[in-house]
Simulated scan of single mutants.
Amino acid sequence: MNTPSQDTVVQTYLDLPRPPKLVLPANACDSHVHVFGPMSRFAYSPLRKNTPAEAPKEKLFALHKKMGITRCVIVQSITHGTDNAVVEDAIEAGGGRYLGVALVDINVTDGALKRLASRGFRAVRFNFMKHLAGGHGVADVLKLTPRLAALGMHLQVHFESTLVHTLGPALRHSAVPVVIDHMGRVDANLGEGHEDFQALMKLLDHPHLHVKVSGIDRVESTSRPGSGYPLGVKLAARLVENFPDQCVWGLDWPHPNHTHIPDDGELVDALSEIAPTPTQLEKLLVVNPQRLYQFPT
């Protein structure tokens, strides 16, 4: 499904995912999605590695209605680079139920950050992934965090699983909360005893560190639609059990840079195993996102 070419448009999501069986609590939040296009209004970045099909806000809103999701955090993607206009547009259309995470340059000005915060962006994200452009040194990223603190924003990071051993100790010194994407991209096939997952668990002993238990469909090398993603679910459930106040969840729609197209209804239903009690589900989908992102009430 992946391609390094910009010439081919890649479909990354199902137009008709199945309705989930699980009924989500009121104010359930999807804390990690993207929006792409339409390209007629929001140009794709010339630095992108591939060209995903348009996934505009209208399709996202319709998906959430079908899934029973009423709140959301949209994460700016490298597909649009550091021009966050596509996410800002979706936030504005979301009527207070949609907030954002921005991509910025390491030398972003205080004025630009203040503007983003005023438009509903609650964090900035930095990638430490080999396949993504725009990487920065963690020391430079940490220098930015006092400026984020002044605006009530936090830091979101996306990194290769092996980097948890070097980035993790540094991230403990952040002046703001840190949210780790997709369970630190650990390899679920290696099990919860593997050193990368154990290092992630140790990192979460620090309460200002948080983790997204998204990506159960990404962390299994043998994952496929309809499988239930049992290895990814097991790791996500362990994180929710051990760190109930530090986990949030997301679909990662429209599933860019993936090996297959997951069914969003299946991902929602996996929550019945990831957070099997009503209290766990309420914390994961409602309480923790409200505390972290501060949706208007």
Rank of each mutant, 00 (worst) to 15 (best):
S40I: 03
R71E: 06
H165N: 02
V268I: 15
H255W: 06
V104A: 13
L60D: 07
L281N: 04
Q6E: 09
A62D: 14
K65W: 06
P230L: 05
F126P: 13
L251G: 00
V211M: 03
Q6D: 10
A275D: 09
D263Y: 03
A237I: 04
D110E: 14
S5I: 00
A175T: 11
N288M: 09
R41M: 03
V87T: 08
M1C: 04
G250A: 01
T162P: 02
G215I: 08
P262E: 06
R41A: 02
Y229F: 15
P146Y: 07
S221I: 10
V240T: 05
G152A: 01
V211A: 05
N288F: 10
D196S: 07
R115H: 15
L239F: 01
L251S: 03
F243K: 02
A112S: 14
E88H: 01
L271K: 04
A28R: 10
P296S: 12
L284S: 05
P254Y: 03
P25C: 13
P177E: 08
G226T: 13
N84K: 13
A175H: 14
T259E: 15
K283A: 06
A170Q: 12
I106T: 09
A188Y: 09
L148Y: 07
R172T: 15
R122C: 09
V23Q: 12
H258M: 05
V87H: 05
V73G: 05
A149S: 11
D181R: 02
A133D: 15
I78L: 14
A90R: 15
Q290P: 00
V108H: 14
G134M: 08
H158W: 13
P296D: 08
Q198V: 12
L284V: 07
T82A: 14
A93V: 09
M1Y: 06
G265W: 04
A53C: 10
P52K: 03
V73Y: 05
G191L: 01
P230V: 05
V157P: 00
G95A: 13
V219R: 09
L204E: 01
D110L: 12
V176S: 04
K114C: 14
R122F: 03
P146T: 05
R218V: 03
T279Y: 08
T297W: 12
H80K: 11
E58L: 12
H64R: 10
D264S: 13
N189Q: 09
C72R: 03
G184P: 00
H64L: 10
V23M: 09
H173W: 09
D217V: 00
H194P: 01
V101L: 07
L209T: 04
P17N: 04
S161L: 00
A26Q: 13
D140M: 01
L148E: 07
K202N: 12
P230G: 08
F42C: 02
A26S: 12
Y44N: 01
H34C: 08
N2E: 11
H64A: 06
R185E: 04
H154G: 02
M201P: 00
M201N: 06
M201V: 11
K21S: 15
T82Y: 15
E54R: 05
H206P: 03
V176R: 08
E282P: 10
V240K: 01
G215M: 04
N127I: 06
